[in-house]
Amino acid sequence: MIEFKNTSLVYPNGTQGLKDVNIKINEGEFVVIVGLSGAGKSTLIRSVNRMVTPTDGELLVDGEDILSYNGRQLRDLRTKVGMIFQNYNLVKRSTVMKNVIAGRLGHTGTMRSILNLYSNEDKSLAYHNLQRVNISEKVHSRADELSGGQQQRVSIARVLTQQPKVILADEPVASLDPPTSHQVMTYLRKVNKEDKITTLVNLHFIDMAMEYADRIIGMRAGEVVFDGPASTVTEKTFEEIYGRKIREEDMVGGDEDDENNG
């Protein structure tokens, strides 16, 4: 369970990232956070694993305030809270397997990880997760030989290998074409349901948010301006969140290509 209590974040340059956020995310929920770029979606997500640190209020994960964490506690938190990135963030020159096993780093001692001494269970887990996202045939390919969609699937396998309780996905499909985007979202959704992993996803495509989310949180200028079940959301809701009319570029579309990959 994740709970924001009057959480605010001001960046050193004065930008207000979060403004008095109060939300409670329940275990196993699939939450999509929507908003225009700069609305604070990334800041919200990255606060949960402390890639950024809120400057005010409280942020509870499993009942503990994580804002004071550092060192070992912080690494334990990050082991529990996995992350997926817009640009996949794989080590391009390393093999798929080495990238996926990196998910075990938080569970593995420094010496063992330097010497690549992983147990058979760890390696099986990594390979099994590659199978789950249908990319196990690339196990020994170098990451830079893979397409964008394949790389994002590898990064899902990496995060699963971490065996997290929470997955944060920061614009996971923003660099992908529509069919691949749907594929990646489907995998995220599947993992969420099968493993009961709480999942927070940033998206700016409204049709995708409505299709995959249990619950939608809308943000504008660092504030939560909407919070409700996906079933209650209409285009009107989005117009309120975005503060403007919905445009074509706010939709990812079903299967036809569009260049809207920002």
């Binding site: 694993n49 890639m51 690494r75 334990d76 938190l77 990050r78 082991t79 529990k80 996995g82 992350m83 990135f85 640009n87 996949y88 963030n89 794989l90 080590v91 391009k92 020159r93 390393s94 080495k98 990196a102 998910g103 780093l105 938080g106 569970h107 420094t110 990880s113 330097i114 990064s155 990496r158 995060v159 971490q162």
Partner: peptide, 28 residues
């Protein structure tokens, strides 16, 4: 590329693991 370093840090890796898994492969 600092993105992979961010990913390894975000998965709970410590500084040495970030170097070994993120930096070394890139500069080898």
């Amino acid at each position: 590329d600092k993105n992979p370093l961010e990913a390894i840090r975000a998965s709970g890796g410590n500084t040495i693991q970030v170097i070994v898994y993120g930096v070394i492969p890139q500069i080898l």
